[in-house]
């Protein structure tokens, strides 16, 4: 029983991390048809910025998380303004540009801080464990879940209550028609990149807590699973991404534990292919 509880909590923590990456990815793709291959790199930027602030910067943990999120958001906005925006009329080149950034950014991090994993300072309050139904669960799992839940609630409020949220929801359905109502949809593009970058880099800062260390390829490694979540949850659907994140995180943990190592990862990746084949419309409806 205690193993199941621990696996469930770890799976949910991992799912929370996936959600932080996938929610932005999903909004960006839903609105702009841009599959952002640099999204994992944004997570790494957030992770390293937080790590740097917490070690060299000497700030406390929470301030470091804020710093990491701010840096990641700025990087994401810069990416949209400098590279994605000038390529709007060349959709494929937008994807290629994010591929290039996705290669270059982790390499830059590696150049500055080396390829080895760096231990992430764990604040005393979050490094302990809690007893839950007979299992000892690390506190950081719950930190991630709480962060993901907060982001989910904030995103839902933003989408439901604000004018830009309305524009994003409409743009996911029919971007051209949004412009035909006199709305400069490009501002919404920058905004979803900012949101996506913020969520991913927050995820990066908290991933340091979850994994106990940061390394340059962490984000890129998570990206593929975030793709699974996005496709499973439906493009542009934040709630769908949340449900899918939980599912993928749990399946992966349990399958990895109870079957041969790696089968969980494998099953999730194969699931991506199966999903796309079974409901291609979920992804390519507008791309055809």
């Amino acid at each position: 029983m205690s193993t199941v509880v621990l696996l469930a909590c770890t799976g949910l923590g991992l799912g929370a991390l996936y959600f932080l990456v996938a929610s932005g990815l999903s909004l960006i793709f839903g609105l702009m048809d841009v599959l952002n291959f640099a999204h994992g790199a944004l997570l790494s930027v957030g992770a390293y910025a937080a790590w740097w602030a917490a070690t060299d910067g000497g700030t406390g943990f929470w301030l470091a998380v804020v710093f990491g999120t701010v840096v990641g958001t700025a990087a994401s906005v810069l990416l949209e303004l400098a590279l994605i925006r000038p390529l709007y009329v060349r959709p494929r080149d937008q994807i290629l540009a994010t591929v290039g950034v996705g290669l270059a950014l982790p390499a830059l991090l590696m150049g500055v801080w080396g390829s080895d994993a760096r231990p992430f300072p764990q604040p005393a309050a979050l490094s302990g464990t809690v007893g839950l139904l007979g299992a000892t669960v690390p506190v950081n799992r719950f930190v991630l879940m709480a962060a993901a839940l907060a982001v989910l609630v904030a995103l839902r409020l933003f989408l439901a209550r604000t004018r830009y949220g309305l524009i994003v929801r409409a743009g996911v359905e029919d971007r051209a028609m949004v412009t035909a109502l006199g709305i400069d949809v490009r501002r919404a593009f920058t905004l979803v990149f900012a949101i996506g970058g913020a969520a991913a880099s927050l995820g990066g800062a908290l991933a340091g807590l979850y994994f106990g260390s940061v390394n340059p390829s962490q984000g890129t490694g998570l990206l593929i699973f975030a793709f699974v979540v996005v496709v499973m949850g439906g493009m542009g659907s934040v709630t769908g991404a949340a449900v899918a994140s939980v599912g993928v995180g749990l399946v992966q943990q349990f399958a990895n534990y109870y079957t041969a190592a790696g089968l969980g990862d494998l099953s999730v990746v194969v699931l991506l292919a199966v999903l796309l084949l079974v409901k291609p419309r979920g992804l390519t409806g507008r791309l055809a």
């Binding site: 004018r163 309305l166 929801r169 409409a170 359905e173 029919d174 949004v178 006199g182």
Partner: peptide
């Protein structure tokens, strides 16, 4: 060009 997922009020508000 009506946004199917949005309510009538939201469709109008967007315009």
């Amino acid at each position: 060009g009506v946004f199917a997922q949005l309510s009538v009020a939201e469709n109008l508000r967007l315009a």
